[in-house]
Nucleic acid binder design. Structure first.
Lengths: 245, 245
DNA sequence: CGCCTGCTTGATCACAGTCAAAAACGGTGG
DNA sequence: CCACCGTTTTTGACTGTGATCAAGCAGGCG
C-alpha cells in the first residue's frame, strides 16, 4: 500500500492494483485528471433516464448512484469514492437507468467522449476498468445480501467495513479513522432503513464500543468485532492479497 | 421477436438483440451449445469461494446467483434464465464471491477455458457479452430498490414484470403466461421476505386479479396494473426498442 | 443572531417475522 | 391404482423490528 501517493492520485492508486500500469497509461490518467473541478454536495453528475455528458472520475469526496421512486423514496445503489469512475455505460448507451449525484462536495474530472475512447483504447486500462466493474458487481451483491437478509446494525456494520477497506486502498484511512461526509439520511437510503432507525442503530453501535462517529468522521474502535458482526470478508473487494487482511 | 427460433436457441435469441451477430459467431455459439447436459434442481454450477470449472450457458430452466450467510440465510442476487451465461468472472479470477445454483432442472452447456477464449476473441461477441453485463448490473440495481424501498407486494410485482420481459425476449412467454419453476421459498430468498409472507402476498395478488400462479406457471392477468403497482419501466432491460413495450 | 439542516428522542403503529401445524401436492414404488 | 413420504403451500396465533409521526435540540453558516 502506498497511502501518500494514493491520496495524491486516487485513480492511479486504485487502477494500479489490478496489475501495474505502463507509464503511457499513467501519463494519460494524469493528463485527464489534471483538469478537475469542485462541485457542491447534492448535485447530479448524471441524471436518470437521460444521456450522460461524458464520464466522471471522482477525485475527492463521496458520490453515489441512486434511483428515485415516484413517491420520492430514494435507494442508493453504490458509493463512489475517490478513484472511482462513473458514466461509462451511460455515455456508451446515451441513457442511464439511474442517477449519479454527490453526497458531499466533490472534486471530479469530466471525461469527454474522446477521452473515454483514449482510455478504452489501452488494453491494460480497459482490463483494469473491467476488473473495477467486476468489483462493483460484487459490491452490489453484498449490498443486496445486507438489505435483504441482515438486521439494521449488521447492515451498517457491513457498510462501514466495506468503506474501510476501499478507502484504505486509496490512502484515505488514517490512525483516527476516515472521513465519512454523509448524513444519516444518506445512510438510511443506502441500507433501506429510515433515518430515525439509523440514528438509533448508530447509538447502539457506539454504546457497544464498536465505532465512534462524529463530525463526519468515522472511527472503527473494534474492527474484529465489527467484522464478525457483519460477517465481513474483504476478499470480494479484490483490493488486498486474497488472504491478507 | 422470433419466439420459435428463440426457444430453439435462447443464447442466440438473446445476444442477437445487441446488434446482429456475424455468421461466424452464430456458428461458434451453436457449436458450443451443441454439447449440453441436464442437471437436477438444487445443484451448484459454481461454488462460493472456489474457482469455477469454466463457464456455463443456461439453455433451459431457471438458475440463480446466491450468497449464504453463516446462519444459513440465503439471498438470491440474480436469476439466470435460458440464454444467460455465468462463470466468466469466476473463471477469470479463479474465484467467486457467490455461488450459482439451479432452481429447477436445467439444461446447461459448460464452456471450457478454451471455449471462453474463443468467445471473447470475437469482437462482436465480446461486445454482446459486455452489453449483457450492463443489463445484469441494471437488474441488480432494480433489485436493490425493490428490497430496500418496496413493500412485499410491490417487490413480487416488479420481479414478475422483469421476468415477463426477459422471458419474452427469448421466446418463453405464451398466451397463457410462462413457466416459473421455482418455490415460494426461492421467491422469499429473492425478495428478502419469508416464505410465509410471500405466500400471503401472492394470495393478495390473486385476490386482486393481478396474477394467476399455479402448477409452476405464472399468468399475468392485468399487466398494466401490475406494472403500475411495481412502477415498472422495462427500459433498463434494453431488450426492446427503447420505446416499445 | 437567526435560520436551516441534520441529529436526537418519545410514543405509537404496522408490516413482516416467527413458530407451529395442517393440508395439498407430486413423485415413487409396491 | 393406490398408499406412502417428502416437499411445498396454506393457515393461525403471536411477536418484534423497524416505520411513522411529531417535537425538540444542536450546530454550522450567512
Amino acid at each position: 500500500m502506498r497511502p501518500l501517493l494514493a491520496a495524491a492520485d486516487p485513480v492511479l492508486a486504485k487502477l494500479d492494483r489490478f496489475g501495474p500500469l505502463p507509464e503511457a497509461d499513467r501519463a494519460l490518467l494524469r493528463a485527464i485528471t489534471a483538469d478537475s473541478r469542485w462541485v457542491t454536495a447534492t448535485s447530479d453528475l448524471i441524471r436518470q433516464d437521460e444521456p450522460a455528458d461524458g464520464a466522471f472520475l471522482v477525485l475527492d469526496g463521496f458520490a453515489c448512484r441512486y434511483k428515485l421512486r415516484k413517491t420520492g423514496m430514494r435507494q442508493i445503489t453504490a458509493y463512489l469514492i475517490p478513484g472511482d469512475i462513473c458514466g461509462l455505460d451511460a455515455a456508451a448507451l446515451a441513457w442511464s437507468d439511474h442517477a449519479v449525484g454527490t453526497l458531499s462536495a466533490c472534486r471530479v474530472a469530466r471525461l469527454a467522449p474522446e477521452a473515454i475512447e483514449l482510455l478504452l483504447a489501452s488494453r491494460s486500462l480497459a482490463a483494469a476498468l473491467q476488473m473495477s466493474r467486476r468489483i462493483d458487481a460484487a459490491v452490489a451483491r453484498a449490498w443486496l445480501v445486507s438489505v435483504g437478509r441482515r438486521s439494521a446494525i449488521e447492515r451498517l456494520a457491513h457498510l462501514f467495513c466495506e468503506l474501510h477497506v476501499r478507502l484504505r486502498a486509496v490512502g484515505l484511512v488514517s490512525e483516527d479513522g476516515f472521513s465519512l461526509p454523509i448524513t444519516q439520511i444518506d445512510l438510511a437510503d443506502t441500507t433501506g432503513l429510515t433515518s430515525v432507525h439509523v440514528n438509533r442503530s448508530l447509538q447502539d453501535m457506539r454504546r457497544e464500543g464498536l465505532i465512534e462517529l462524529r463530525k463526519r468522521r468515522l472511527r472503527i474502535l473494534d474492527l474484529p468485532r465489527l467484522r464478525a458482526l457483519a460477517e465481513f470478508d474483504p476478499a470480494y473487494l479484490q483490493l488486498i492479497g486474497r488472504d491478507a487482511a
